[in-house]
Amino acid sequence: MSSPLKIGVVSCSGEGYVEGTISRIATRLVLERLRPNNTVTICLPLFLTGEKGERMFAKYFPTIAVDGCEKRCAEKAIEKYSGKTAHSIVVADLLNVWDIEKPRSRRNLNEKEMKVASKIAEEIATAIDTLCMNGRRRKSANI
């Protein structure tokens, strides 16, 4: 039996902004609860510092960038050093699209704000499922 396709979910981790907190928590929710068997994460500053293992992973496995704001640190970093991301999510953009008020605390999310993080996590999980399905299709086409 083949092991499941591993997908890197890379959060911007942004400590300075509440959107960074949402991107980080949504990423952890995916890793721990929604898709634990398919996902790994990497520390973005470690990646940016030039850690070879992190960069090699992002080069050879599909990655999903989860950025808090329009500066898109995660997406830009991956594309600069390891090639194009398979999918990209910007929390601030999704909050606008869903017409959801920006949470207030960058430290603790309340119950309502946790639901927003969960909704973002579901978006990431959907992207993972699509990538896995496309991966399986490509594999069977090669047989």
Binding site: C12, G14, E15, Y17, P45, L48, K71, C73
Partner: peptide, 8 residues
């Protein structure tokens, strides 16, 4: 502040 922003 965001370390990633600094490193970027």
């Amino acid at each position: 502040l965001c370390l990633s922003l600094l490193v970027s």
